[in-house]
Amino acid sequence: MASSFKINEKIYNKLLELLNDAYFIDSKGNINDFQFYHDDHWLSDSAVIDNLVYKKGEWNIELIFALHNNPLKFIKRQIVSYSCSKKANLSASLMRRMAAKDQRGTLEVKAEDFKICHN
């Protein structure tokens, strides 16, 4: 028979006490605990743009999540890098399709349209 994990009696009792206390200590959460959800809610309705950046001999795939009605509201995330550009291209398009709400991409938003100033 496989020997299983054993717990010290004192610690087991302490654990049970903590379980008991959970029902007396736990209180209801506040509505503002969910603020993070509201803060990130716009992401569910964003356009996704895939962007390939050649850096240190590798093609980095970046996904840009942009709100289509407010182009200044966007975030950029670097996902992964490939040493082959074709592979990177293919992965980037697949990732964009997976991440985007509008998978066919008719709600297209181009990075250039944002007229981002790199200075």
Partner: peptide
Amino acid sequence: MNKMIFQIRKRLDFHAKR
């Protein structure tokens, strides 16, 4: 069996506290 007794004992504590 020891664990079982401990559980019952702590359960009594819980209901006493409640």
